[in-house]
């Protein structure tokens, strides 16, 4: 498995990277952790003529709370999210998702932004970011802009970004006082891509009523999906068994899986229901202060 020949650039600044991309157009690809791009190149499913490696640009990694939001730098590795104390304490959904992506070796290299731009519907970060209502900070030929996650995914392996764009970070709403989240991933073995996974995030008000909800789905459609009807089924209600059951069923309705080695359409749809219920129960418990 040897890739086709390519040119390699290792810029040390964002501007340099952007101008390399501008110079090479469609020919060029950004390289982050390489955990999706390099396998594709080795199988010769991708044959970019030019690689622009972002790894030598300072200041593109890190997880911090600032200005009322959570900031994840584009080059932040899965492992860095997994190990962050801040994330573990306040963003259990992110912590749980980070720790079930692939295996430790891939987690040490692969980046959150790379995963989102790769736009694999079986990727875990897409569902998490949909559940969180994240925004991507993007630098392109025309300067900087924010792209809401709901507008990112077009279809499998395709986003609304242009070849000249570089994602510089991801912005998430800061965790509220009573917020909770959970990631439920069903896999055939550890390190496997999900058969089905569900990301759930809940915000409760002082009465324990759900004020905000986010449910993202993995591996049950052409992209990661947001189960909006399921979210609606929870908002304004206490997350009791009846509400969770209704939301889980709505989430299953939102899924449009295809059959493969991991299971049938019916199985995967039902797993959305089963995993949604499990994730929501844990998210609710966590938001209620029990987590």
């Amino acid at each position: 498995m040897i890739p086709a020949a390519f040119d390699y650039h290792a810029p040390t600044s964002l501007d340099e990277a952007l101008s390399l991309l501008a110079a090479h157009g469609d020919e060029a690809k950004v390289l982050a952790g390489g955990q999706s791009l390099i396998p594709m190149m080795r199988f010769r499913l991708a044959e970019p003529g030019v690689l622009v490696d972002l790894n030598h640009i300072e200041g593109m990694a890190g997880v911090t709370e600032e200005d009322g939001h959570l900031w994840i730098g584009a080059l932040t590795r899965h492992a860095e999210v997994e190990r962050s104390d801040l994330v573990r304490k306040r963003y259990p959904l992110l912590h749980e998702a980070a720790s079930v992506i692939a295996d430790p070796i891939v987690r040490n290299r692969g980046t959150v932004a790379g995963s989102l731009v790769h736009a694999d519907p079986a990727g875990d970060w897409g569902a998490v970011m949909l559940a969180c209502g994240a925004e991507l900070e993007v630098h392109g030929p025309d300067g900087q802009r924010m792209v809401p996650i709901d507008e990112l995914f077009v279809t499998t392996f395709m986003t609304s970004l242009s070849p000249g764009d570089i994602v510089t970070g991801i912005k998430l709403p800061i965790a509220g006082k009573r917020s909770g989240g959970a990631y439920e991933k069903l896999e055939r073995k550890v390190g496997d891509f999900a058969t089905v996974a569900v990301a759930a995030r809940l915000e409760l008000d002082d009465d324990g009523v759900c004020s905000a909800a986010g449910i993202g789905l993995t591996a049950v459609g052409a992209t990661n999906l947001r189960a909006q009807d399921a979210e609606k089924a929870l908002i304004g209600k206490k997350p009791d068994e009846a509400a969770i059951d209704a939301a889980s069923r709505a989430a299953a309705e939102a899924a449009s899986p295809t059959a493969d080695n991991r299971g049938s359409v019916e199985y995967k749809r039902d797993m959305v229901r089963v995993l949604s219920a499990r994730a929501l129960r844990r998210a609710a418990a966590h938001a209620g202060g029990e987590g």
Binding site: L186, R188, T195, R262, G263, S264, E266, Y267, D270
Partner: peptide
């Protein structure tokens, strides 16, 4: 695989 077990349970009316 899990989906085969799930199907067997489903066929037996278990959910």
């Amino acid at each position: 695989t899990s989906d085969k077990v799930w199907k067997a349970l489903r066929d037996a009316g278990i959910q």
